[in-house]
Design a binder for these strands. Structure first.
Lengths: 247, 247
DNA sequence: CCCGCAGACCTGTAATGACAGGTCTGCGGG
DNA sequence: CCCGCAGACCTGTCATTACAGGTCTGCGGG
């Protein structure tokens, strides 16, 4: 197997293992390394990139974590048979953190942000009177430039005064809620279904209207009596599967 | 902080990092180390247990993975606050219980049940050698007569001897595993995606091949080293949405 | 009193060396 | 022809050393 790889940058700006991980992932994503094909051994990779086995193992560990490869003691490391497997952790914001940590570029763009009056669905989810003021936020999240998640959030305006004017670009909404309003979710309920997007949502996510997506409805609570956030998210599970960890 | 810890076993039967990880986890689970309290530093742990920092870091890495601790560069490692932890309420059987409680008739029919040899996917999910004996079970669950869930389960045969001959009709598999083999899941990972069924699965679920379904891949663990059940389930979310509670 | 900085302390990254133990292949004896 | 075993190869585990860079505390100058 002859592969030409970019030389690693040793200025310390980015860890060697992360650069190596990305280099390997590129080959896997591109299909250059097919399912169940072996990667070069740790010793070979160590030679090819002139790094220690420590660096190689760190890079491989990360890829195993991302489920892009699997290792068999005594045999080697192999490309996972499953195709697009990124890690997507529990909460929406948590998952973005994980993706970032795994070396992906995550951006969040706020499409709409406005005050309005709660409709039937929002009133029921947030358990507030019909017509109470809510802040509505529509955001599109991308991973490495690829649309990934479209979220429509509604919050009771009295809990988050001024949020309709806050700058949210590339920030986790939960971080803003915590830092600006001291709101910390204590619990959440989520319901997941498989749906087709309507024309507008499909174009936002850059898929056809016949692509099956995950629809995730969520309500977050401050305590038993206060629901402070409801959202409906459309999730491209062809990009990253929705992950639920149970501990 | 004075802590008495068990001495580590150096006979090679179990890796040192794993023993250390377990020792630390015991303190965390018992509440001896409260939320956001710092663990001893890596150097201290290294001294306390007479192991290299390599071992300590490996143990801590595993605990971070399990989300029991978090680390801050320059400060140390801390116990995760309990409340941010994910608790999963709606397991497959749990949701069936919910449905039953709501007055619906839930039936489970075993379609196939046989011994076989683990393929790549099963081997990777269960972390067993390729070709090891597994028990495979395919079940169809109905709600009020309507197909609702199609589950393909695989379990290492050595953990569940004779399961391929057990009568499972209308029983929760988890109940059988607990009662007959004393197996209790300690944790699980699940990945959810939106997919189309193939022809066979579609006819089982009585939908067309262009109906979007939830595909749920799951691995359940007894402990960090023993994975005892893997399944892939197809779920008709037009019937009941998949529920995830986070507490 | 406040600010800035040195130094202690901590985790992150990296290199190197060593050995255990699982996997595979090919050779040679039966 | 088959079986078993040596040896090559591979990942897993562990120890040691070194330095980078983030965090915190306390001291001293303004």
């Amino acid at each position: 197997m002859t592969m030409t790889y970019p030389r690693l940058n040793r200025d310390g700006a980015e860890p060697l293992w992360m650069q190596l991980m990305r280099a390997l992932r590129t080959r896997i994503d591109s299909g250059e390394l097919g399912p169940d094909q072996p990667l070069p051994s740790e010793a070979e990779l160590s030679d090819m990139f002139s790094v220690s086995r420590t660096v190689v193992r760190e890079a491989l560990r990360e890829l195993v974590q991302q489920r892009l490869i699997y290792k068999v003691k005594g045999r080697g490391a192999f490309v996972s048979p499953r195709k697009t497997e990124l890690r997507f952790i529990g909460s929406m914001s948590g998952s973005a953190d994980d993706l970032r940590e795994s070396g992906r570029r995550v951006t969040t763009h706020t499409v709409r942000q406005a005050l309005g009056e709660a409709d039937e669905r929002e009133a029921a989810l947030l358990q507030i009177p019909l017509g109470e003021q809510v802040v509505r936020i529509r955001r599109l999240r991308r991973v490495d430039g690829q649309p990934w998640l479209l979220v429509d959030t509604a919050l009771p305006a009295r809990l988050v005064p001024g949020l309709e004017r806050a700058v949210l670009e590339n920030q986790s909404l939960y971080d803003v809620l915590r830092r600006r309003y001291g709101l910390e979710p204590a619990a959440a309920d989520r319901w997941i279904e498989a749906v087709f997007p309507d024309r507008e949502d499909a174009s936002m996510l850059e898929v056809s209207t016949s692509t099956p997506l995950l629809g995730i409805e969520s309500v977050a609570w401050l305590d038993d009596n206060t629901r402070f956030e409801a959202y409906y998210a459309l999730h491209r599970s062809d990009q990253t599967r929705f992950y639920v960890g149970i501990r």
